[in-house]
Design a protein around this nucleic acid. Sequence first.
DNA 1: GTTGATATGTTGTATATACCAATTCGACTT
DNA 2: AAGTCGAATTGGTATATACAACATATCAAC
Lengths: 244, 244
Amino acid sequence: MRKVDKESPLPLYYQLKDIISEMIENEELKPDDPIPSERELCEYHGVSRMTANKAITSLVTEGVLYREQGRGTFVARSKEKHQISNLLGFTEEMRRRGLEVSTRLLSFRKKAATKRLQQELELGSDQEIFEIIRLRSVSGEPYALETAYIPVALCARLTAELLDSRSLYDVLNREFGLEADYAYQTIEPVAVNDYESEIMAIREGALALLFSRRTYLRNNVPMEVTKAIYRGDRYKYEIVLKRS
Amino acid sequence: MRKVDKESPLPLYYQLKDIISEMIENEELKPDDPIPSERELCEYHGVSRMTANKAITSLVTEGVLYREQGRGTFVARSKEKHQISNLLGFTEEMRRRGLEVSTRLLSFRKKAATKRLQQELELGSDQEIFEIIRLRSVSGEPYALETAYIPVALCARLTAELLDSRSLYDVLNREFGLEADYAYQTIEPVAVNDYESEIMAIREGALALLFSRRTYLRNNVPMEVTKAIYRGDRYKYEIVLKRS
DNA sequence: GTTGATATGTTGTATATACCAATTCGACTT
DNA sequence: AAGTCGAATTGGTATATACAACATATCAAC
């Protein structure tokens, strides 16, 4: 094990954190292995126990280690698996799972916002929105019907051509510098209606999930409102819940 | 300002955290207000500076406060809007919204785990599980039907009486020291079946959401598997998505 | 063999103290 | 009026120590 450098300007507890993290990355310490006890660490490195304690506490709050009183401190199982970035568009989400996705643009038009959309997007009564309706498919099979509403003010130069081959999030990000920061989403069970069943080639009244999402930019400006119908027989929504 | 209670079994730093959090919630301290300096806090409460420091450090890592060296420690701008604690049991979640909730225990028994549950809970073939079926109501109206499976090994002393008046998470936490750390959850649309429709007093075939959840402890040991049916006409699942 | 006390090791919390580093602000100088 | 210096205040880090709470192994007594 490397030792801390007392001459370094870096805090001792910080160096100790690095040393332990490094040993885990090098697999000198594997998941569920006990790390040296606090007393061993402070004797070995010539620091006080509080300093070792601080380094370990920090790694515990980061989820790298876990403690059990009276037993010791152990390496947590890799968290990578549990980290699902859940602010991805549909395309990115599916690609992640290694599936071939395609999107067909069904409708693209500029229109006045309804009262409800005005509220949700925090718009004045004279501001227009884009309405973008797209059909999502995986391996050629329809999967979801998505309608997005975006204030024209945010991306006036948006055209149907831009959306033709690329994902909405990608276009908004690269062409207009719009980056989603957070979103509110609700999920409800619904039965698909006439139009939806025809488009998605499923029977009318079949089960589906309705996702209603409001996405915001970093400065808390609403970026888009999306209503999406996902086929219940193909799609299962997965999320990871974490303790505060 | 309330003072810490030296006779309390709760750690001093923990009490101090609560006191500061409380003052923020009561708006005695508003965003960007400075909180008392560490030295003031330790004199006022009669604790050492390290203890005050520990309380503050903890709140800083939680994002409640932020520090500026040489200037002081300040209340962070409210994250509340974006912070949905999504690892709450049903009871806590509804109470947060100010609704009156009740739970009726329909069934409580010890049984052998199915193959599938053995896998999900990482159990050996001889290990038993508790099956807990509960009906959730809001204002006396049935709302959700929840079936939880928990390894007997984790809470052998669990009884129906314990669950009678308290929430499952509360009992597991306080009586057995089991604290949920993270969970995987899937959501699907379903039509309620015969049994479910009768219990929940809705029409057979009505729309509902099926939540399947696998909850883990901090050491990545599976704690419970839950299948819950939520009435679609009453329940809308809300989540907040954040950028990585 | 089982039980129970004891010793030892672990983390959890807390104190008292010390010095360092960044900021603020007033007093003083120019 | 502007700049400079230094004292005071704030958080940042570190030490040495102590006792509590919990877990586990060991060994003696039954």
